[in-house]
Amino acid sequence: MFFHRALAFLLVLSMAPGFAAAAHAGDRIVVTGSSTIAPLMAEIGKRYEKLHPGLRIDVQSGGSTRGVTDVRAGLSDIGMVSRAMTAGESDLLAYEIARDGVAIILHRDNPLTELSNRQIVDIYTGRATDWADVGGKPGKITVVNKAEGRSTLELFLAHFGLGVRDIVAHVVIGDNQQGIKTVSANPGAIGYVSIGTAEFEASVGTPVKLLGLEGVPASVANVKNGTYPLSRPLNLVVRPADRERLEPVTSFARSADVDDIVADQFFVPSHP
């Protein structure tokens, strides 16, 4: 009896590939790539599905490089790439749906208005431990760093040419809200959080201030126009041959209809 059931199961299983081929008809759009974009794209996909019943958008994560190779190999329809496209990737069409910006924040009572990249590196590697070392009012510096695995940490490290092990942190935080709370409660603290969150909190009176970088003020507007240095584009990529077929999805992902979803993930919308 048991063996009969097991045999029947294996028979059903052996037919599975046939079913799979049928299931991959044109009503399903597969999106793969950057795990930073995946939660955002999954939410955009859900909203798009509501507007287009019968169509399904399956979002898979796995990293930006995988996003590029999957689209090239035809394993996915759309790739997600959370960095600038390289010269070797010009065979694909890229659509920027949003930007991710990171702002360095200080307590509002800290008199400093600007730090050079060198000074920020000194503070984060423990070479400068007092605000007087970087031209500020004497007082101990509390270094607030992000937990490993956060995309803002990666962006911060890459921009300043640091490795995870180089950083000497006093407080390690998880999300943006925690960073805002830590810095606003500690006049000697320095931290970095997603720029959308920081600008919102500063505007509603939380005692934090955003520090400009390389002479550019930290603001959502400067992330949007590309002048703020500590930011990166979030791209969708498609094969040129699929351009027209996927045009409804790629333009929906860049439209004002999803601005609230983009902001909810602490990114900055970029419209065409």
Binding site: A16, F19, A20, A23, S35, T36, A38, P39, D58, Q60, S61, G149, R150, S151, G174, D175, N176, Q177, S194, T197, Q265, F266
Partner: peptide
């Protein structure tokens, strides 16, 4: 809706919330 649909496992969900989604803790 079938075994041929993609479905997220609980452990993957925990990993994603802890590592990728701000405020997912």
């Amino acid at each position: 809706s079938s075994l041929l649909d993609s479905g997220r496992a609980l452990s993957l969900h925990i990993y994603d919330l802890a590592m990728n989604v701000a405020g997912g803790d």
